[in-house]
Amino acid sequence: MAEGARSAGAQVDLKRVPETVPPAIAQSAHFKLDQTAPVATVAELENYDAIIVGAPTRFGRMPSQMASFLDQAGGLWARGALHGKVGGAFTSTATQHGGQEVTLFSIITNLMHFGMVIVGLPYSHQGQMSLDEIVGGSPYGATTIAGDKGQRPPSALELDGARHQGMLIAKTANKLFPV
């Protein structure tokens, strides 16, 4: 996503939300614990022209950490601070049928309540229609299938989809917020 957004001239900040799960449980559940990205704050969201939310699937929806973070943005919602900004979502699941689209919708629903303009992954990225290999992707956002222990890296087609969506989000933001 970041690479695609940068290719369209966007400045990109990579952030993560605070972890709420005890370390022992997170480790046994194969959480990615070696994150180097700084922790995001709700207050800084209104400073961005576009916000792309990525989260793994937990039981067919976004994880509680992300839901908690977005729930804390009620003040931004009340002020309309995110109205008209561009939003998008991406996710990963353990299996092909692990809830990719429901997870994307659980993220997108929040973004729409904030009044954001949603950009998904249209079929201009035709790789998501491939029948030659297992591949993630949905018109609602880029996805990947990670395996039950995170052992499968995103495929070339999945990475191309993420880049494409990131580029489209940045181009849309550039049109709405010209420099």
Results as ranks from 00 to 15, higher is better:
83 H>Q: 09
61 R>G: 04
174 N>H: 00
5 A>T: 11
152 R>H: 14
135 V>T: 14
143 T>D: 06
41 T>W: 08
12 V>W: 13
8 A>Q: 12
63 P>E: 06
173 A>Y: 15
4 G>E: 03
123 Y>R: 02
111 L>E: 14
131 L>P: 04
158 E>P: 13
78 A>T: 03
116 M>A: 06
57 T>H: 05
108 I>R: 11
56 P>N: 05
166 G>Y: 03
153 P>M: 06
56 P>W: 02
70 L>R: 03
11 Q>L: 11
23 P>D: 06
113 H>D: 10
38 P>R: 06
114 F>Y: 08
82 L>A: 00
149 K>R: 10
69 F>G: 01
165 Q>D: 04
125 H>P: 15
92 S>Q: 13
173 A>W: 15
152 R>Y: 14
38 P>T: 06
8 A>G: 11
81 A>S: 13
164 H>V: 00
31 F>L: 10
64 S>A: 15
92 S>R: 04
111 L>H: 04
77 W>H: 03
176 L>G: 00
83 H>T: 10
147 G>W: 14
4 G>R: 08
19 E>K: 08
148 D>Q: 07
148 D>K: 06
134 I>M: 15
87 G>Y: 04
156 A>E: 13
46 E>S: 08
161 G>L: 01
134 I>A: 14
175 K>I: 09
131 L>E: 11
132 D>F: 12
172 T>R: 09
166 G>T: 04
95 T>V: 04
79 R>N: 12
79 R>I: 01
99 G>R: 05
118 I>T: 05
139 P>T: 05
77 W>M: 01
136 G>W: 14
118 I>G: 03
95 T>N: 10
70 L>M: 07
81 A>K: 08
140 Y>I: 01
20 T>W: 04
120 G>E: 03
17 V>L: 06
161 G>F: 06
28 S>T: 03
100 Q>L: 04
55 A>T: 14
40 A>S: 09
55 A>F: 13
46 E>Q: 13
80 G>V: 07
58 R>G: 10
90 F>T: 09
48 Y>Q: 02
35 Q>Y: 07
69 F>L: 00
7 S>G: 07
109 T>M: 14
16 R>T: 09
9 G>D: 05
7 S>Y: 07
35 Q>W: 09
56 P>L: 05
160 D>K: 13
131 L>M: 09
151 Q>P: 09
1 M>N: 10
110 N>C: 02
53 V>I: 14
178 P>Q: 00
9 G>P: 10
18 P>G: 05
58 R>D: 12
134 I>Y: 09
148 D>L: 10
171 K>I: 10
16 R>P: 04
112 M>R: 15
2 A>H: 09
31 F>Q: 12
29 A>S: 08
55 A>S: 13
37 A>W: 13
39 V>P: 02
75 G>N: 12
19 E>I: 05
150 G>D: 04
133 E>V: 01
171 K>E: 15
